[in-house]
Structures are given as C-alpha cells and as structure tokens.
Design a protein around this nucleic acid. Structure first.
Lengths: 187, 187
DNA sequence: GGCAGTTGTAAGCAGCTGCTTACAACGCTA
DNA sequence: TAGCGTTGTAAGCAGCTGCTTACAACTGCC
C-alpha cells in the first residue's frame, strides 16, 4: 500500500501495509472472499509475512476491524455519529474509514471475530443510545444502527437502484428524519 | 429433507429435497459457507445429483432464491408486505420463507445470482413504493427495505443484544412507526 | 423376460485455500 | 569485519471446494 522508499527492511511498515490492504479488501469483498494472497499482493509483501506478523487471517481481520472502528468512534461525538457513519457509508472515497462495511461484510457463519464484532457493535449502540431518553434506548439505538447497515448492504453489496445511485444528501435527510421519530417517540 | 418412502427412485422428490436443503443452509450460512456436500447430505442425496439436476451450485442458489421470494410476494399484499417480511425475519421458525435472509446472505462479491437478486429486490421495492405518493417513492421504499435487511443482519448474523433478543412486537411497533414517517413525510 | 432410459453411487480430479518451512538477504552491534 | 537476530522469499503441504466421470441399480414399456 504505502511504500517507504527510505528503508528497505521495515517490519512496522510491512505490518501497516498489510493492515491497509486488509482493510480495503475486507470492506470490499468480505472475509471469506478475501484471500491472504490478495492481501499480500496488494500490500506488496510476501504472504508468509502476514502469518509472521498476525498469526492468522482471522487475527489480521480482528486487528483491521478494531483499528477502523476505534478510529471512527474517537473522531465523532455521539450527536454526529449517526450522520457521520451514514455519510461515510454513502461516500465511497470520502471517509477512509470502513468500520461498518467491514463489520457487516464479516457476517459469515459467525466465529470470525465474533467477540470483537460484538464489542464494536455495542460501542456504537451505546453512543447512539445516549441520544434518546426512552426506556428502551438501547433497542432503538440498535435499530438505528441496523438501518445504517442495511443501507450499506443495499448500496454496496446488492447495488440496487435507486438507492445505490441516490444523492447522499437526500438519503441522509430522509433517514435522519425517520430516525428522529424512532428515537424521540415515547412508547 | 422430506422423505417419500413410497418411491425409491423419484427425481422430483430429489430435486425438492435439494431445494429445501439449499434454502435452509443458504439462509443460515450464506452462499460461500454452504458446500454442495452439506446440501446433499442434508437432503439425504448423493452430491452428484445436485449437478445433474441444477448444473451448478449457483444455479441451485438462484432457484432457491427465486422460489422463496416469489412465494413470499404472492402471499402478501403490499400493505401487509412490510410487517409480514419484518415478522418473518424476526420469528426464526414462524415463516418458513427466508427470501430476505437468503438475499442478504448472498452478498459476497457480486456475481452470484446478481441479476436475479436485482429482480427480487426490485419487486419488493415496487410493492413497497405503492405505499407512498411521495415523488421519490422508490427511494423511500428502498430505504424501508434496507432497514428490514439491516435488522436481519444484526439479529441473525451478528446476534447483537438487545436487538437479537427483543420482543418481535416491540420491534415491529417501533419500526413501522418510523417507517410511516419515512413514507408519509412529503420532503 | 429383455431392453432402454432414468436415477443413484463411488471415486477422483484440478484448483484454490490457509498456513508452514527452509533458507537467503539484510543491517545493527561489538 | 564478524556474528547474529531480524526481515524477506520461494516452495510446498494438506485439506477442502465445485464439479466430472464411469458405472451400477432400478423402473416402465414391449
């Protein structure tokens, strides 16, 4: 990914390149359809190094998802997290962060980073839950999060029109309005 | 799946058993993580027959998704399609239909039954679009559909609490209320 | 009963996957 | 410069995958 012409042998740079390549490919194709050979090639690195530095494909995946979601959560306060996450999903190149995409692509049968996915999801939901004072705040936050993920699925995985090609602003407006109903409505 | 003790050799029953087994496994694990050997075993059938009757794993998948979504659409009128689809996703054993689950599980990189998935999604969206008279009816319908899929993802793939364990009635109530806002609100 | 087409079976092939190993090239320290 | 741990490489292994093939067993028809 990012080459460091200054040094020829640089373990840190290699690790970073693998993380970057993994982040890109996992977000694009999901866990199953991304091969360690693809990751290594994109990183410009021998694939054996992936196992030296991360131990396994799953371990690399976990580090990818951890880094990416942590970055995103740190960068956005709760009240802006919804629109920020939504926008990062709507604008492919805009935000380099792919936490939610990677998260949902990782689906599969479950074992792959399941614990970690749980933590990430819980952290998103906890932040969103602060936006409402309804008694079932967390459930409503989960539903809001689920919507973001669903939109990501439809846009980037199935590519269905008109959603896939719609103006991000229009989507954000529609979704945030409805989510406001979801969060504010008592009972 | 369903055994027919009366006949020993029955091509139709074998085909049906493969379709049933495929429907179950594809919905549970997605396309990639379901092997033809698993399908054949669950169907109680030699795996070579899968290729005799369907040609390829992808072709079987397409027939599975076509059958399942068609059944669902035929059975529910537009005004009840939303709640029916939502409920069928919320109650694992309730509705034997898994159209949306299979649909979203099929994600992967895209080639697998892409055309067919597009048709299915379009048909759902067209029916949902009849529920609003907003100018961007189809976009709103897509967003509603996306929400259903997102809820399915969170509940059945990531299993996140409290959503995964929440009362279906509570979810239906919250979601339908918000979706009403989404569909009715004129700009 | 004899035949032909249909249905079912066992075995295996080629390709890809994650992962390992044995080894070479490098660069820091003494 | 000699030695040694670190970084990078090439090759390959074992297991699984979708799919094919060669063949056996059954069924319906004459």
């Amino acid at each position: 990914m990012t080459e460091q012409p200054g040094r020829k042998r640089d373990a840190a740079a290699t690790r970073q390149a693998l993380l970057d390549a993994g982040a890109k490919l996992f977000a694009e194709r999901g866990f199953d359809r991304t091969t360690v050979r693809d990751i290594a090639e994109l990183a410009g690195v021998n694939q054996a190094l992936l196992f030296r530095y991360f131990g396994s494909k799953e371990a690399l995946f976990e580090q990818v998802i951890a880094r990416s979601s942590r970055e995103h959560l740190d960068r956005h306060p709760p009240e802006r997290l919804l629109s920020a996450s939504l926008r990062s999903m709507l604008e492919p190149g805009g935000d380099r962060n792919r936490a939610l995409e990677t998260y949902l692509r990782s689906s599969g049968s479950g074992d792959v980073g399941a614990v970690l996915r749980e933590e990430v999801g819980a952290e998103y939901a906890r932040m969103l839950a602060t936006l409402t004072d309804a008694p079932d705040a967390e459930l409503r936050a989960d539903l809001a999060l689920a919507w973001l993920m669903g939109i990501g699925v439809v846009r980037e995985i199935t590519g269905k029109q008109p959603l896939a090609g719609a103006d991000p602003d229009a989507i954000v407006s529609l979704v945030l309005t409805a989510i406001r109903t979801l969060l504010e409505r008592a009972e």
